[in-house]
Amino acid sequence: MDEGIGSPGRSTRQQERQRAISEMVMAEGAVRIDQLAERFGTSQMTIHRDLDELEARGLVRKSRGVATALSSSLVESSDVYRTGQQQEEKADIARAALDFIEAGQAVFVDDSTTVLQLTKLLGSRTPLTVLTNVLTIMEELKDTRGISLVAIGGAYFNWCSAFMGSMTTDAIRKLRADVFVMSTAAIIDDVCFFQNQATVEVKRAMFESSATRILLADHTKFTKRALYALAPLAEFDAVIVDAKTSQEDIRRLSSRGVNVVVARPQSLHPQQSAG
């Protein structure tokens, strides 16, 4: 039965249902709205209202009777969903990216979930100055000894847990870093693409304010679509991919002068001896 306005516990039940809906959609990628109504024993109208709130928070998308966590060429999926995808590959890429970070450097990092994996490893490269517009990375690094954190503000966007807009880009352009580490939503014709122009503007500002640019891209990026171009892969100092990336893609990029680094899977990393 639907909850009436003013019913006791309505807010708590609604929050619990919305959390369960978001978890279900993120686990399955896409779920029909009528399935959600049946699963939670409520009307489709109530589910629509729940999804409207979740969409406003950047957690899911609603389109043609389907709730989805998947990105399209126009809309990026939420960072909550992306964090759970290709976890092993992202971890492999992050370990490989750590080789490009040296103690004493200033490092720009973007809002990608692959870069988030890298930030968990930065404690081994201290002292470092990390510059970021990403709230989740700020939370990750704020108590890490040896890391000086430069937080870049602006207008906050839930779907990527990051600050963007003119205030953000203006602040970035006044800074200079040794390294910029970023990922991409899609690779089309060997060019980085994103679904959001504001995202491109922030990353472009970081790109232009850094001496060395490193791109992290798991194999799925070569099959995805997005609308706004950022830069050709040839403009990066290194492009780090995972071991599942096709040999055809690797050969093509190498032939075009791209410095392609293939991250070794964790299972192939030498184990430390017991003593």
Rank of each mutant, 00 (worst) to 15 (best):
95 R>H: 12
68 T>K: 03
155 A>L: 10
180 F>W: 05
213 R>C: 11
170 D>A: 15
205 A>V: 04
158 N>F: 14
270 P>G: 03
122 L>I: 01
175 L>P: 01
124 S>I: 00
206 M>F: 06
150 V>I: 15
150 V>Q: 15
239 V>D: 04
18 Q>C: 09
44 Q>Y: 01
78 S>Q: 07
53 E>L: 14
158 N>C: 08
50 D>I: 05
72 S>I: 02
218 D>V: 07
140 E>R: 14
98 L>R: 08
45 M>C: 00
90 K>W: 09
102 E>P: 00
170 D>H: 13
241 V>L: 13
137 I>C: 00
166 S>D: 10
202 V>A: 12
27 A>T: 06
235 E>C: 10
216 L>H: 03
11 S>V: 11
205 A>P: 01
224 K>L: 15
55 E>N: 11
120 K>R: 15
172 I>R: 06
236 F>P: 02
223 T>M: 14
102 E>I: 00
232 P>W: 03
174 K>G: 11
100 F>N: 02
11 S>Q: 13
131 L>Y: 05
3 E>Q: 08
14 Q>N: 10
137 I>S: 02
13 R>V: 01
39 R>L: 04
124 S>P: 00
31 V>N: 09
49 R>M: 08
244 K>D: 12
270 P>R: 14
97 A>P: 01
150 V>H: 12
41 G>F: 07
266 Q>T: 03
256 R>H: 15
97 A>L: 10
17 R>N: 02
204 R>C: 05
150 V>T: 07
209 S>W: 11
264 R>E: 15
28 E>F: 06
149 L>N: 06
98 L>G: 06
241 V>D: 10
174 K>M: 12
155 A>K: 14
28 E>L: 12
88 E>V: 09
227 L>Y: 08
233 L>Y: 03
252 R>L: 10
222 F>P: 00
217 A>K: 07
154 G>T: 10
178 D>M: 13
35 Q>C: 06
49 R>K: 14
116 L>N: 02
194 F>W: 07
213 R>G: 06
161 S>K: 15
71 S>T: 01
154 G>Q: 11
227 L>N: 04
263 A>T: 04
144 T>Y: 04
26 M>C: 14
215 L>Q: 05
124 S>Q: 13
18 Q>K: 12
